[in-house]
Design a protein around this nucleic acid. Structure first.
Lengths: 207, 207
DNA sequence: CTCCATGGTTGACGCTGTCAACCATGGAGC
DNA sequence: GCTCCATGGTTGACAGCGTCAACCATGGAG
């Protein structure tokens, strides 16, 4: 029975923590509940008392990754003008995607059979998306335009798509080095942000 | 021993075909070599005589998906003006991604441990990317600009990223319905293409 | 004091990828 | 024509996986 270090709720937490550690080492394919149990010195069925299935643990982990992700996006310096702030958000996005690729993949690359089964995760994901939406709205507002509703959604979808796609490609997941990115990542990103700014119809570009 | 319908090279082909069928039905996680063998009425080790490992079959399938994908991109009507042609390519891209989501995931969503091990697949992937690059170059040329080298790469990367990202999001893989896409896909796509056109600095938008 | 929900245990099942050893066949070299 | 060996199939085994089932300790509510 483990090294009796446990109050109630303890094993559940420990499972998630250990699962995250495994994913950080070996990626999501290397995760098994039995391995989690083994590392915790606990029987192979113990985690099952806290999670109905492997997918539920995955969803919980994804939820936490989303929370950390949102925190990362929020941690950019305050007080910048809207254009610059939006660009900073883009940089924060890519920074997270590249510095914690396995967490990123957990959020965006892991196929959960039915995401609707995991409402907590969905809510956190929506929160992150909202941050982007607001950043875009502010940037438009700074140029005297009011953008909202479906137009704003479309803008946000556009920015999100571009960042998400670039992240996938830079991480090589998509193409395994299809593009020979000879130039440093920062340069690629700045070029991309400039194009995105034009695409949004922002006057100054985003820089 | 199966229904002796086989010349040499036959079982290898049959494996790939059957594996693709399984993926089309159940997605890539549902694929197992044993199931392939079972469906072909052959022993569970027979496929192993033709593929060193599961990953190699996956790579072969991805390669074929890339080939089909390139074909799909190429099948757009000829003779259109460059802007329109580029937009048509974007539509073809999304059409493939949404109408054959499992193949698409095979190309872009499946994590192959080491893509460099599968040069054929890489080559086909690069070919598809080249088509995009050329389409963009023509669109610029139509406006009297010559874009090449790193700038062209950046443009292509930008367009590819955006389409790839949008495809991922529309397929729900990324976010599981994070965005409530109330409007039809076509509309979302056209809005996106318009933004991409602006991002590229094309005068007319892309439509 | 009893009872039962909670959270742990062990054991089994069927599935997977992969390794190993064995065997039929048919064409090359002599 | 006989031998030999590569090719491509076979069966059998192994460990690891998720999951189901049954069992058991404990502790708080009635």
């Amino acid at each position: 029975m483990a090294a009796g270090r446990g109050r109630p709720e303890d094993l559940r937490e420990a499972c998630v923590r250990e699962a995250l550690a495994i994913v950080a080492e070996q990626g999501v394919e290397g995760l098994s509940l039995r391995e989690v149990a083994r590392r915790l010195g606990v029987s192979h069925q113990a985690p099952y008392k806290h999670f109905p299935s492997r997918d539920h643990i995955l969803a919980e982990m994804a939820a936490r990754a989303f929370a950390a992700f949102a925190g990362h996006l929020e941690s950019r310096p305050p007080g910048n003008p809207p254009h610059e702030d939006l660009a900073a958000m883009g940089r924060a996005y890519m920074d997270y995607a590249l510095s914690r690729p396995l967490d990123y993949r957990l959020m965006f690359g892991t196929p959960l059979p039915n995401p609707a089964d995991h409402p907590d995760m969905l809510r956190l994901a929506c929160h992150a998306f909202d941050m982007l939406r607001q950043g875009i709205a502010r940037a438009h507002a700074a140029e005297g335009r009011t953008v909202e509703g479906q137009d704003l959604d479309a803008d946000a979808l556009y920015v999100w798509s571009t960042l998400h796609g670039l992240a996938g490609i830079l991480r090589g997941q998509a193409t395994g080095g299809l593009v020979q990115v000879a130039v440093p990542v920062e340069t690629v990103l700045e070029e991309m942000l400039a194009r995105v700014g034009r695409g949004l119809g922002l006057r100054a570009g985003k820089t």
